[in-house]
């Protein structure tokens, strides 16, 4: 049995989600290849070759792959699937965009957001915003799976696989890339950060969000997250959203400030190692999952926290 992992990268560099997905793949087989599909992605392919346990890296490059177009991924991956028994993709927005398209073309189910590989046919995945875990057994000859990266440790970096360049087939020209607006940040990535500081509706404005949440994050070397309410109101960009339908994070420390703790938000952060909540409402549901709860107005609590951190040498 051989497994293909579709790498997560931004053309310039490889994302840690790839090494986590390799860990899931190695539970299925020792023959794990990584596909780096993009443009100008040689460095990402070289990085993938260093992941422990990787047999071979396939590098395919074209403008459409670089733009992440699902149609281009379909054209590339479906023929490659003949060589593999399973195709694993991290369940990032890009993975979720392309993987079901590949599964349907192969006429197999997609098993979404797998958090545990039980055996070659049996997988565990969260459903209902993580309020239930479903164990499913697949009868398909090929498995197409998206992997929830937070559920797996990254494979090591002791590998030395070969990088093989393969041709990118032409993709149907029905989809045209117009442009993108990416949020630039010096902070660690939300899904890979050791500490995440998130703000909610209580912030009241984008200025307040920046004034309260960002300095605290910077002090802790943390990534910044947000609730849906904060994103909807324009206090924070869309890719900060943590939750059932946003990003799933599981840092060492998650600090929720002015977030009530709706089911959908909890779905994205309740596997964090330590959860801190600052909320002025002692009955807010976030306190039910918080290891440490501070019932306070953030307007006084966050400056005090900044102070206390400074005193503690942060």
């Amino acid at each position: 049995m051989a497994v293909l992992v579709i790498a997560d990268h931004d053309n310039a560099s490889l994302k840690e989600d790839t090494a986590k997905t390799v860990t899931a793949a190695l539970k299925l087989s020792s023959d794990v290849d990584v596909l780096v599909a993009g443009q100008g992605a040689k460095a990402a392919a070289d990085a993938a070759a260093k992941i422990t346990g990787v047999r071979k890296v396939l590098l395919a490059e074209s403008a459409e792959l670089g733009q992440g177009l699902a149609e281009a991924f379909e054209a590339l991956v479906v023929p490659l699937a003949a060589n593999y028994d399973a195709i694993l993709t991290p369940s990032t927005s890009q993975g979720r965009n392309v993987s079901p398209r590949i599964a349907a073309k192969l006429d197999v189910a997609q098993i979404s957001d797998v958090i545990e590989v039980v055996d070659a046919n049996t997988f565990v995945r969260p459903i209902y915003a993580g309020n239930a875990l479903e164990t499913v057994q697949s009868s398909d000859a090929k498995k197409v799976i998206t992997v929830r990266p937070t559920a797996f440790k990254p494979a090591g970096d002791g590998g030395s696989a070969k990088v093989e360049t393969i041709a990118a087939p032409a993709a149907p020209a029905k989809t045209h890339f117009v442009g993108q607006q990416l949020v630039k940040s010096e902070r660690p990535e939300l899904t890979a950060a050791k500490i995440v500081v998130s703000g909610g509706r209580a912030m009241g404005s984008a200025e307040e969000f920046q004034k309260v949440i960002e300095p605290l994050a910077d002090k802790l070397g943390a990534a910044v997250g947000a609730s849906r309410a904060a994103v909807d109101a324009g206090y924070a960009p869309n890719d900060y959203q943590v939750g059932q339908t946003g990003k799933v994070v599981a840092p060492e420390l998650y600090i929720a400030i002015g977030i009530s703790g709706a089911i959908q938000h909890l779905a994205g952060m309740k596997d964090s190692k330590v959860i801190v909540a600052i909320n002025k409402d002692a009955d807010a549901p976030i306190f039910q999952v918080a290891d440490y709860g501070l019932v306070a107005d953030y307007k006084t609590a966050v400056p005090e926290l900044m102070d206390a951190l400074s005193k503690a040498g942060k």
Partner: peptide, 25 residues
């Protein structure tokens, strides 16, 4: 294509504590 073997509850988080001040935290 998938058979549901079982549906279980996710592991529960152990209850936490309230802290009084930011310094305590």
């Amino acid at each position: 294509r998938l058979k549901v073997v079982k549906v279980t509850e996710p592991p529960k988080r152990a209850g936490g504590v309230k802290v009084e001040t930011a310094a305590d935290l």
